[in-house]
């Protein structure tokens, strides 16, 4: 399925904004994403499987809060990073 990558994580995807990854849940999708782009998962998901504070993940436009969300191949996953800071 289609996964949209925010700017700060595109160093992992050879600067590609849109990539493909598979999984029956968001957890599986992120594991697949990490297989394809090693290291990317830990920058947005912590060791307790929580989405990091400044990361938001949307599935078909709806924000999700956990990793057990079911997915289908037609879904679109949008990863967003907060723009706050200085």
């Amino acid at each position: 399925m289609k996964v949209l990558i925010p700017d700060p994580l595109r160093s992992y995807t050879s600067e590609r904004r849109e990539v493909q990854a598979d999984g029956a849940t968001l957890s599986e999708l992120l594991a697949d994403l990490d297989r394809r782009y090693p290291g990317i998962r830990f920058r947005m998901i912590d060791e307790q499987d929580a989405i990091r504070r400044h990361i938001r993940i949307f599935v078909n436009g709806e924000q999700v809060s956990g990793l057990q969300v079911p997915l289908t191949s037609a879904d679109e996953v949008f990863i967003v990073q907060a723009l706050s800071g200085g």
Binding site: L9, F42, D46, H54, I55, G85
Partner: peptide
């Protein structure tokens, strides 16, 4: 970074090339 999780980068040629730790 201010928004992304922590990691460790490694170079074995005094900084000419860098690779991220597989397991930070």
């Amino acid at each position: 970074t201010g928004h992304l999780g922590p990691t460790v980068f490694r170079s074995t040629d005094f900084g000419a090339n860098w690779k991220e730790a597989a397991q930070p």
